[in-house]
Amino acid sequence: MQASRIQQRRNYALAALLFFIYQPVQAHFQLLYTAETTPTRGVATDWFMLFTHPAHGGPHMDMAAPEKFYLVSQRGDAAEPQVQDLLEYVEPLEFSSEQGITQAYSASLPRSVTRSLGDYVFVLQPAPYFESTEDKYIQQFTRTMVNVGGVPGNWAEPMGLPAEILPLNKPYANWQGGVFRGVVLADGGPVPNAEIEIEYLNHDPNLENMTLGEQAKVELPQDSFGTQTIYANAAGEFTIGLPRAGWWGICALAIGADTEHEGKELSQDGVLWLQVKDLQ
């Protein structure tokens, strides 16, 4: 058992080394995870923020302190959207994995934040991350949407972010085997032919100890299956299938107007996470 664990660590270290040497096509994804996106009533929520490669379960990248973490909530069609700054709840997290310690962040939000019925659009704006292997910065404007009780709200409203994926169907109510449609937006306008990457969160997060499960849920037959790449149409729209329950990340690449940071190339990406339920 011990020998197998040592071998597993060796394999992981080798994989990490090969990753940095050969730079295979793996997508960086800013994770913004909570256990349940559709609670029936208001509950306290824990959030896990890790910059990672979700299909491969790593390597993970050190995050700088988030620039913004907030929500926009709305109950029903007629209500006005409410903005709530959540940065005060964000705590640094030393995320531990086979790779070692990675700087991540977490937040524990009291029930009062999500007590009311309706939609809650959580937005994380991390500081730009310098990816030395690509000699560029990456900044992913990341959204995860929660609905309390089944009363809809503002899930379909654009927020005018520098980079954003606008859902065309409810992002928190997707069955395994269904499809998800969206529009890629930059500063509120559609981005024609945007390059989009999709990855399955292949290692379940554990919010009790803020770790990722060691066992992959899906064995990838070949590296192309880890990151699915598609292009939006001329109107910025896209459709993807959701073949398995769990979490799916969608990332529209390099669509923001700012293309330079501290003298280097900057990729401003828009990320949206979906929690997909099993139809049983």
């Binding site: 029936t40 029903g76 007590r115 089944g150 009363v151």
Partner: peptide, 26 residues
């Protein structure tokens, strides 16, 4: 459309109930 209602314990021995509908109506 389905009717939805949740009730919560509040400070000062109060109970707060909030209702809504699955189509977002008030």
């Amino acid at each position: 459309h389905n009717a939805i209602c949740n009730c919560y314990e509040e400070p000062d021995n109060q109970v707060l109930c909030e209702g809504g509908f699955s189509d977002g109506a008030s």
